[in-house]
Design a binder for these strands. Structure first.
Lengths: 125, 125
DNA sequence: TGATGGAACTAACCATTGGTGAGCGCTGAT
DNA sequence: ATCAGCGCTCACCAATGGTTAGTTCCATCA
């Protein structure tokens, strides 16, 4: 049975590639429907064209995204495949978690950082 | 409002760091309860001690994991904080997706790879 | 009373990945 | 004929990740 905790299991490789920010953002962006390269680039703030192309290729290879570039004017449209659609819920859950709990994280981070300056607590160092 | 699609938004940084394989695997592993460094290392096949320590530090900093190292024999116990617990569901969803759909992915991948060898279809090259 | 070994790291090093900026082939509009 | 826009690709460099080898502290055992 598939088990991501064994390095050799194929599901682990799947996780490895899925668990990166550009894949998560891209799949989320494609939930809004088929889109062109430039639209995706504009929607996903901060993505380089290189990473966008690269991530699209790998998602395409894994059957999560479909690429259609038949049009004579060279425009290309990407969309989620049925398999890709099954990722909507889990990916949205991650995204929503990040948006919902960001405040708690920032707070914890500030505490941790200030504690580090002059706290006699932690032994290590 | 928080929006992961804008690069400047703090929630985006949260996503960046959450969306990596070791974080996902670590949080999943910690769902089984408090554990020691060595236990985690053994449970997560393929993780190096460096990455384990590094990921634990960053999760600790973000308030998702708690570290207790008071014991005199130097053993240390890690566990999810209440904030970390809120990640159980979304992280489990990703993990289960990978395990559930890995067959479809592998199949798509093989098709894509074989197509690449001698298919007159795709123009680019 | 060393000697051994385990636990939890840290350091140094190198390979791979990611980001940046420029450029390229094609097309349709001016 | 030129030019802008689209969808990339290339070359380069910095940052990240992986590998191996330590190191420190403690506990146990001969």
């Amino acid at each position: 049975m598939a088990n991501v905790y064994s390095a050799a299991c194929p599901s682990r490789q799947a996780l490895d590639r899925l668990a990166d920010k550009w894949s998560v953002l891209l799949i989320g962006a494609l939930e809004a429907g088929p889109q062109r390269f430039g639209q995706l680039r504009d929607r996903i703030d901060g993505v380089s064209e290189k990473m966008l192309a690269q991530t699209l290729r790998s998602l395409e290879r894994d059957g999560l995204v479909n690429r259609q570039g038949d049009r004579p004017d060279r425009t290309v449209v990407y969309q989620l495949t049925p398999l890709g659609e099954t990722l909507r819920a889990p990916v949205a859950a991650i995204r929503e978690w990040a948006e919902q709990y960001i405040n708690d994280i920032e707070q914890a981070r500030e505490q941790a950082d200030s504690r580090q300056s002059e706290d006699p607590g932690r032994v290590r160092e």
